[in-house]
Design a protein around this nucleic acid. Structure first.
Lengths: 196, 196
DNA sequence: GTCTATAAGTAGATAGAC
DNA sequence: GTCTATCTACTTATAGAC
């Protein structure tokens, strides 16, 4: 095989993301990934030191974006405008490329749990961190003194944005609407929830 | 080992549900299940003809409950009261035992897809049917002539009920509330969405 | 950077004794 | 109903040639 043009690592990432969400992490063998790229299994090991490392590299991307978002949020004073702006940023993220990673995470939680377990020993980014980051986004969006009902409304609003892009397929209802339309309406509904 | 007391099949189901959601379907070997029950792998094969069959039997339970719900819904005339009643029934189901099966399904979609693929050949219940059933519940709850925004509000409301019991753990926010309280408030929020 | 070859392990499933 | 023993078919991962 001719040497790759230098972005084999990225190609592997993309094929892996596709395969992992399609047939699952466990259900995808490195052989399959290699075949799709017309290389051998062993070649993959040149670019990633293990199968786990491929999965991890996909998730770290989202982890980094969320870390940045939270860092920004921490420096903003709470206000309705802040809620709005935060919601917008979350939507930009999760209606973008990140939604495929969300699917990946949702569909492979057991694997990720075991990955997180030994991440602690290896000084790798903890995959479970994402949950904490989302939790903090919700906390940041929640006013100091508010009742349980209001807090759950905020949670529902954020969930609608984060899981919105993939609930359609999970719920089996058929909405004839472009992704952009869906994003706009999801945001509108989330705001309605915050405004009640 | 002494002969089981006659409900070994059910014991296997329960241990499997626990293990499948904890470590995933692929991540759970029949050996592990057998060990937890203090029997050997081979013994499982007396009760289930394959590993798939165990998984399937767990899901069919929810499938049956949903089929019943849809059958009931089809015979009701549409009205706001019907929406309310349907929401209640969905909540009873998904805040009950079914939520563990939802987790199971959500966390093992790739496996289920391949299971569904050959279900057609074997005259087994199609696992993907669940999506269609939920889709129909949403359709039944949706008035004849209504705009996209309203339809997405209804979808969001139903999603909040179905995924409500498990979004807490997925979103990493910490709500100090009993399951019963959460159910009540989730239903209230879903109704707020329908009432907008 | 990619290859062949193979190690070393584990999985699901079956046969047949008890 | 449960056991022991075994088969077949993978898997991830490594070693070393090119």
């Amino acid at each position: 095989m001719a040497p790759s043009d230098g972005n084999m690592r990225e190609k592997i990432r993309q094929v892996a993301l596709e395969s992992f969400t399609e047939r699952g992490y466990d259900g995808t063998s490195l052989r399959e990934i290699a075949e799709q790229l017309d290389v051998t299994k062993a070649a993959l090991y040149y670019h990633f030191k293990s199968k786990d490392a491929i999965l991890l590299s996909l998730i770290v991307e989202l982890l980094d974006a969320m870390s940045e978002l939270v860092a920004w949020g921490r420096e903003q004073p709470f206000s309705p405008d802040f809620q709005d702006e935060m919601l917008d940023r979350v939507a930009d993220l999760f209606f973008g490329d990140a939604n495929r990673v969300v699917r990946l995470i949702q569909q492979n939680q057991p694997v990720l749990r075991s990955l997180a377990a030994d991440a602690a020993n290896k000084q790798v980014r903890d995959v479970g961190e994402l949950k904490a980051l989302i939790g903090e986004v919700i906390t940041l969006m929640t006013p100091a003194d508010c009742d349980l009902h209001t807090r759950m409304r905020i949670r529902t609003a954020v969930a609608a944005i984060i899981f919105g892009p993939i609930t359609g397929e999970q719920l089996g209802d058929t909405l004839e609407a472009s992704p952009d339309e869906q994003k706009k309406i999801s945001l509108a509904i989330a705001r309605e929830l915050l405004a009640i």
